[in-house]
Simulated assay, not measured.
Amino acid sequence: MINIQLTGLTEASYRLELRSVTGQKFIERTFNATGYRHNEKLMRTASMTPGIYFLTIFGKNNHKITSNRVIVL
């Protein structure tokens, strides 16, 4: 399980992507933030090997809000 804690969001719909360092997309989902703080839980897929991944959050019109590294053990 990958737990994500987001802060500073306005009430809106967002999209998140989790990709490997080679660009392979493992997870994509939309969510609705209902306040300043928002938590998301992502299930680790069987094909996700330990390593570094990139989590990117997109807002309206696919505007990139943030991107962070995620280390999967």
Rank of each mutant, 00 (worst) to 15 (best):
N3K: 13
H63D: 12
R44A: 14
L18V: 15
M48P: 04
T34G: 15
V72E: 01
E11Q: 07
L6C: 04
H63A: 14
L9P: 09
S67T: 13
Y53I: 03
S67M: 14
K60P: 01
Q5I: 08
F58G: 00
L9E: 01
L9Y: 04
R15T: 09
T45G: 11
I27E: 02
S47N: 15
E40L: 13
Y53W: 07
I4M: 04
S13Q: 15
T10S: 10
F26R: 06
T22M: 11
R19C: 10
M43A: 11
T66Q: 14
R69K: 15
A33M: 07
Y36H: 12
N61C: 06
K64A: 11
R19Y: 00
T45E: 14
K60N: 13
G59R: 03
N61E: 14
T30L: 07
G23F: 08
I57K: 06
I2Q: 05
N3L: 10
I2D: 03
E17W: 06
G8C: 05
L6Q: 03
S13R: 13
I71P: 03
L73K: 15
I71A: 11
S20A: 09
S47L: 12
L42S: 02
M1W: 09
E11N: 08
H38K: 03
R69S: 08
R19I: 11
V70S: 05
Y36Q: 11
I2P: 03
I52A: 10
G51Y: 11
E17A: 08
M43N: 11
L6D: 01
G35A: 04
V72I: 14
L73V: 01
A46F: 03
L6N: 04
T10N: 10
F58A: 01
N61V: 03
S13N: 15
T45K: 15
